[in-house]
């Protein structure tokens, strides 16, 4: 298609004219970020997802600065003398998400509502938890865990899966068999069980949970990119690069992966949602983040005992997980549409 489409233009070009644009430009320029973004802008679902993701990421960033960065800075005298400490911003301007207040009633409902524990107040717009801590504050600080875990676990899975899948697909033969069979062995074990096994081996530390979820998602990415690589490696530009003396490593890195990355990017976006859900599930079971650090899954778990008396305590973290996961899925779907020209028009 491309060949016949362009020959008419060649006559013009050869005279010294600037190359004219082709009909297939629209499809080919999907490699550009600007094009992808313009596609998403025209897609309300994806845009909605993006807005929610941006909002949640903003919250998470704020929470990370307040909870983690300040915690680290407080170790140094220079900063400590100005009063820098963990949850500095929250405690100065608002309310501590982790300290149990002495006089605040426990399990208050959202502001205007009333339940067996008392009348909700605007001081705690979403109510208080079983220790009297503000739910809104804990939700905000819980977003840090959700987003971080989703992003890090996905990056681990994406990098691992891309390397394994690209190497397997590019070399083919025995290398392919060896790597893909190993990866499929992982695939055969149910995701959740695999992650639990990692935790059993390495401990319930959040870092291991994230890496565990990441490793467990390697097969998905590896299989996805391998199938793309198998077709990309037959392209003439790969052969041209080989003929020009480019190392295999650089061919894979610069020519193979960038041309087969689109589906991985889409899957990655969807995977963030899944990872958030998995880690929330693990927190619910008591793995992952340990109290008093707030996380949505853990709040959900704590709220179980008082679900009848104060249903709001369960609804808020559940809603946060739902909204975030759905947002990532909506954005992922939009991204898929934007990156896959076959679905366009």
């Amino acid at each position: 298609m491309a060949t016949t489409g362009s020959t008419e233009d060649d006559v013009l070009d050869a005279d010294g004219d600037v190359g004219s644009l082709h009909k297939d430009d629209e499809i080919e320029s999907r490699v550009g970020w600007r094009y992808t973004l313009s596609q998403i802008r025209g897609d309300p679902t994806a845009l909605g997802g993006l807005v929610v993701i941006a909002f949640m990421s903003g919250l998470a960033l704020f929470a990370t600065v307040d909870a983690v960065v300040f915690d680290i800075l407080s170790e140094y005298q220079v900063f400590a003398q100005y009063g820098v400490r963990k949850y500095w911003i929250a405690e100065t301007f608002w309310i501590s998400p982790i300290k149990e207040p002495l006089e605040t009633p426990r399990l208050l409902p959202p502001a205007p509502l009333e339940n067996v524990y008392g009348q909700g107040t605007w001081a705690h717009p979403l109510g208080t938890d079983d220790r009297g801590r503000d739910i809104l504050a804990r939700l905000v600080y819980g977003s840090r865990i959700a987003i971080t875990v989703g992003a890090i676990a996905t990056v681990v899975g994406m990098v691992g899966g891309t390397v394994v899948g690209a190497v397997a697909g590019y070399y083919g033969g025995r290398v392919d068999d060896l790597l893909m069979r190993a990866v499929e062995t992982l695939y055969a074990i149910p995701f959740f069980i695999l992650v639990l096994a990692f935790i059993a081996v390495f401990g319930t530390n959040l870092a291991f949970v994230m890496v565990g979820v990441g490793i467990a998602s390697i097969p998905t990415f590896a299989r996805l990119i391998r199938s793309e690589v198998v077709s990309v490696r037959e392209k003439a530009y790969i052969e041209a690069a080989t003929a020009a003396g480019v190392r295999d490593r650089n061919i894979i890195r610069r020519h193979v992966i960038p041309n087969s990355f689109a589906p991985v990017l889409v899957q990655g976006t969807l995977q963030i949602g899944t990872a958030i859900l998995i880690v929330a599930g693990l927190s619910f079971l008591g793995f992952g983040v340990q109290p008093p650090t707030p996380s949505w899954g853990q709040m959900l778990s704590k709220s179980r005992a008082v679900m009848i008396e104060n249903v709001w305590y369960s609804i808020w973290p559940g809603l946060c997980i739902l909204v975030t996961v759905v947002a990532f899925n909506m954005f992922g779907d939009g991204l898929r549409d934007a990156l896959d020209p076959r679905l366009n028009n």
Partner: peptide, 25 residues
């Protein structure tokens, strides 16, 4: 072959100009 011959001493031009350049760079 890769370091001394390909590209440096012997270069090759392929048949299909539309396919022989990497579209993402």
């Amino acid at each position: 072959m890769r370091e001394r011959i390909r590209g440096r001493e012997i270069a090759i031009i392929f048949q299909d100009p539309m396919e022989s350049l990497n579209p993402v760079f």
